[in-house]
Every structure is written in structure tokens, then in C-alpha cells.
Nucleic acid binder design. Sequence first.
DNA 1: CTGTTAGCGCTTTCAA
DNA 2: TTGAAAGCGCTAACAG
Lengths: 330, 330
Amino acid sequence: MKKNKVTIYKVAATAGVSLATVSRVLNYPEKVKPETREKVLKVIKELGYRPNVIARGLASRKSTFVGIVVPDFSRGSVAEAINGIVKLAIKYEYQTLVFPAEDDNRNKRDVWSDIIASQVDGILYLNDLHDEDAIEGIDRINIPVVALNSVFKESKIATVNIDYSDACYKITKKLIDNGRKNIVLATTERKYTINDVIKEGYLKAIQEANLKSKIVYTSGKTDKNTKIFIDYLDNNKIDGIIGVRDSITISFLNNAIISGYNVPNDLEVYSCKDTRICKLARPQLSSIHVPTYELGKIAMEKLTVLMEDGKLEKMDLFVPYKIIERETTK
Amino acid sequence: MKKNKVTIYKVAATAGVSLATVSRVLNYPEKVKPETREKVLKVIKELGYRPNVIARGLASRKSTFVGIVVPDFSRGSVAEAINGIVKLAIKYEYQTLVFPAEDDNRNKRDVWSDIIASQVDGILYLNDLHDEDAIEGIDRINIPVVALNSVFKESKIATVNIDYSDACYKITKKLIDNGRKNIVLATTERKYTINDVIKEGYLKAIQEANLKSKIVYTSGKTDKNTKIFIDYLDNNKIDGIIGVRDSITISFLNNAIISGYNVPNDLEVYSCKDTRICKLARPQLSSIHVPTYELGKIAMEKLTVLMEDGKLEKMDLFVPYKIIERETTK
DNA sequence: CTGTTAGCGCTTTCAA
DNA sequence: TTGAAAGCGCTAACAG
């Protein structure tokens, strides 16, 4: 490792001060006399010195690393969140380390073990598919955690979300108010916590209107879903679709159109995330707009507070959302 | 930092050996007597000891960190690559650190400066929009770099790609062989190196057939592109579309269909990436299939070789690709 | 305001 | 085959 040969010693030597002084201008500049500070800063710049974060981490027992735990980077809703997170991480001078969640070849404990070994100061948890073990892992680990787009029923984990239940209640109600009576919710068969909450909102609106709930369970695979949707459409007459994920919704929409539905006249459709692909649907998809990029920034912001103060005024934060009407609703 | 209180000292003490021995069973197990090794391993397990990667990094001058430089996580083609990278990083016991490229608020040098400070042992470069400065940065930094989905004309940077030029030549030729004479290439106005290479393949086929090239330049924004496409379709009669990115292609496809084209009869369409959204287009999009996940794995694999041996037999690797015929081509 | 010094938790010679 | 001891580059008391 010959890179970054210039160490704090070299800076100290060429500036004619002790290494402690150099360290101070970096960490507590106010504790150093302005002239000395300027002199040191000048040398730092000339030499292109950057403190070794590893050494700094060891000495200070703060790594300035935050870990992002995420199951799959290709999910539109996590990708934008990560953009937001890294944006703020730069601002606060944290480095971001990524940890894939629940890899099939390894048991879940290992993720936490990896995280502990890596000495991160905080964790952003973007995994929405968590069981008892995951929660126990988070509770036991002695590191601040902020979860994003993920609901924890009885745990003191800090979360940042939109109120998905309320949002889905609203769009369901909109459809009902438009006279729709056969509204299907397309959700995942796997138990994602957000999808459960979305379902609650849907059911509430449906029950209030004395309608019958209709739920179709899907997988993550478009090909498989196509079969499910075709089959469903063959056996059910519907006039409303709500899909928990944009890809699911678009797939359902496409199959409905192919089987003869006129959207939005016969059938109105809402999605629940509003990732970029909503605008790539034809007709363009109406959706609950989740400000994912902002959520990422807010979560990172919360985490910095948690890492510095050890506590948060509000553990569960709900960020405002919008409902975007495009071409699949009236 | 009270987490991970168990250090190598504790393990050594409770196992009744010196810390050097514990270190050896972790790093050079063959150098320690089997019985001692077992004893130490047992204690490690009981105590749940995990070596502090920070301290290890400082002592060994190898951080076991790799940096991923990426402009935008929400691009389908980078997300899958990252999935592949982290998958292999786990296998080789590297931690992955992410660095957003070219943030507007900071000049480009800072990215490299951040990277140097973080002490990564290697870099995966997923940024396809690089200028002279970026190349100079890579060349000057004394750390192994593998670039993915990115072309460097005259630099000794290791790359992993598919042969985009050849692939685009082939699909263009297919369209020509189907009798298409007005084939448009939809590419980006920004100079992405891959898109330039794709264009080369397109132009080669077009010129060989003595056709006239037609290129429409787009942005990253769907709304803006819609205007561009509508305008283009108003003023041009076409029978073939090739889009450099799936989102661009779908957007063009949608507008063509809305303006009356029958796909694939009047108009055949190919895309160049084959991310998940190709299957969400209606009709489903034919595309060059880039094995992005695999590219990520291969790039990480290459990087480990580079980090260990300092050299590679083949600096520019081309991975096989396929052309997937779906519903937008005949 | 600045310098000296003792670590942070580990790896790595060098001896034994 | 093992242990002692010297750092890795930095932070953080503690003096001065």
C-alpha cells in the first residue's frame, strides 16, 4: 500500500509543528491559533494530505462508516433511497458500506456478524422482509439503526416511512368514489411489512364501503405474474387495480389491456411507489408518490443524530406523500 | 464503541495462548499446531469473536475494502452489476464501499481524494460518463481498477464489457435483413462511452447497406424525451428503432404506438440492455441481453486477481451476450 | 495554544 | 510451533 504516502507525520514535519497540532486543525480547528492553522492547512493542501480513515477509526473508535443493509439493489425503490443516503453521507463525511441481506448461501446471523466486524457507526436498514431473527439481530446489536420503508410492530427501531396505510386507504376510496366496486389489490405472496400495511389501508376502505375484498398474490417474477394475472382476469370481472409495486402493477395493467379492458374507462389503476417506470407504462400509471430519494436523505439525517446524541425525539417518522394522477385513473 | 468488546486479547487470554497465535490461526492456520488451532477456534466461536477490520487494516496495510464508483444507483444496468459485485465481494471477504461519482457540488478530484482517504484496496468503476480528468484520476491513483460497462480508448485500465459495437451491428443488420430502411438510433446527447460504441456498430451496418443513418439524441428524463420523440415522429417516417437504454427505447416505442405505428409490423424495435423493464413494455421489448449481474461478478473476480497479483492476462474482457427476440421484432 | 505520550486492535518480524 | 515486541497512522488525555 504505497498510496497516500503522505501521513500526518510528514505534514507535521514540513509545517514545523507536532502531529497533535495537525490532528487538531483537522478535528478541532478552533483550538489552534489561526496563524498556525493556516500554515498547517497550507501544507496539507500542498502535500495533498488526506487522513487515513482506517487509522483514524482505530484511534477514535469511530469508524465514520455507516452500513446499508439491502436485499436487492435492482429494486427501484431501494435504488433511489441509496442515492439519497449517499448524498447525505458525503455531506456528513461518512463512508457508506453496503451489506446484502439474506443471501441464500449464508444464514442471517452472518450479516450481523459481518456488520459488527466492519465497525460501522450506524446502520440504514432497507430490508423489508424481516422475520423475528432480523428484529432480534437489530435489537441485540449495539449500533444505531434507522429503517427505511419497513415497518416494525413492536420494536424501538427508528423508522422513516410514508403512511402507506393511509395512502392506500385514500386511493382505494378514490376508486370507490368513482363508482368502482370490484377493486383488486395485487400484492406479494412473501410477507413484506410495507405490503401488509398497504393491505390494511385497502381493507379498511373496502370494508367501510361494504364491498368485497379481492386480493391476488404475486411473486417477484414478471413471467410468473403474467400467468397469475391472465388466470385471474379469466375468472374475475374487475374495475379497479391497486398494485403494491410498480412492476407488479404494470404487469397487471398490461394483461388487463390485452384481455380487452379499456383503461381508465372500464378499469382504473393505481400503483403504490411511483418509481420512474410509472411513466413508461402505456397509459402512464397513476400512483402514490413515495419520495424515496428524500426518505433516504431523511433516514441518513436521522442516523447522524442517533449516532451523535444516541437518541431521537421521534422514533417513527412519517414523511408527506402525494397521489399522482396520470392516465390510468379518471 | 462498546460493540464487539471481545478483542483478540480476550480470545488469547481465555484460550491460554498469545495474541500472535490467535492472529495466526486466523491468517495462517497451517502454521499452528492442530490442537492449539482447535482450542483457539473453539474459544473464538464461544466468544463470538470477529476481528476488527479497522485494526486489521491498519496493521496489515490492506483494508479489505473495495470501492464502487457509480453515478446513479437507480439505473437498471448498474443495480444488477452491484448485486453481482457484492455477491462476490462476500465470497472473497471484501467489504464494499460506495462512492457516488460526479456530484454537482463537488469537483471531480474530490472523488479520488475520498477514495484514497478510505484506503480501499481496489476499485470497481461503473461510471460510463468519463472525461479526460476521470481517466487521469484513474491513471494516477495507485490502486487496481476494473471498469465495467465503460470503454477506455487509450488507457491501461482493465475493463469488462460485452462487445456492444458488434451487438448493435448485429441487431441493425437484422432489421436491415427484414427489409427495414429507416432505422433510427435513439441515443443520449451526453457522451457515454458505451453509447458511442453502440453507435459505431449501428453506423457500420447502416453504411454497409448504403442506408441513411438517422439518430435522435435524448436526455435522461422521460418527459423531455416524450417531446423529442413526438416531434421526431411528426417529421420522420421510420420502420425501425434501436434505443441505447431500455427506458429510452420504451418511451420511443410508446410514442410510436400512440402515433399509430403497428409494432412489429410497421415498425420493429430493439433495445440494448435488457433490464427487467423490457418485459414490462407492451409489446414486450426485444433486446440485446447484457448479462449485467454476471459482468459484476466477473469484474469483482478480476479485481481480486489484480489486487493479489498486480496484473491480469487480459485487460479487456468481452463477455458473451445474447439477442433476445420478444414481441417488438419479427 | 501546543507538544508529549500512550494507546486503538491487529499483523508481523524476530527469537526462543 | 509459539511468544514478545514493534509498529500501522491516528486521536486524546495530560502537561506545559
